[in-house]
Amino acid sequence: MRSALAVLEEVVAAGPGVTAKEISTALGLPPATTYRLLNLLVGEEYLVRLPDLRGFALGRRAARLALPAVTTLPTAARGVLEHLRGMVRWGVHLASFDNDRLRIVDPDPDHPPGDADLLARYPQASALGRLLLSEQPDWRALVRELRTFTPHTVTAPDELTARLAEVTRDGLARQCGELRVDRGCLAVAVRAPADGRLVAGLALSGPAHRIADPDPELVEQLREHARRLEPLLA
């Protein structure tokens, strides 16, 4: 266990491309042990082998070991959120997706969102989380447990896959009464203008029955404000 963490640390310290021999020498571990640990960490996808098959680098999964950095929102972005909050009577929340982790960076002070840890831990049950999951090659990589919160919560893997396909198709994520029976949420992606990478999600939360059949004008306003945020957040 300790050696496995040391190997992980050595890959971070040495940078991408470090070889098994180099790691073994640096740590003073027997080669056979080092190779075994490396294969274990590659099997679990904390590490990846680079295309020459000799060098190692941190895998995507290793990102989940890192704590999210505290970010402050640019004033201009705050202004966009305030503008939207002035236009609608719903809660307006902004979330970041650094390191594949959902974090509410600007919750609506008048309509506080649910427990932040809960949202981060069960991304499949929130509209913002579904934006994140629909970007993944396989959502299972980020979902631990399909927990039931209300009778409406999606808990069947196939149904979740279908919902996430809808998110990709419509560019709009939603959940109706899946975290709390009376509340629902709509969310759209905020993408980097240069490469289309998902950087944040903008969400509206309101009564569940209104989410089920959202006002197209409202959705258009949401999309418009997300577009305005794009150059400010990327």
């Binding site: 990846v48 941190l58 895998g59």
Partner: peptide, 13 residues
């Protein structure tokens, strides 16, 4: 199936 940019931490395209 080589490792691609998207699989590596901090190198996502």
């Amino acid at each position: 199936d080589e490792t691609v940019a998207d699989d590596v931490h901090g190198r996502a395209a």
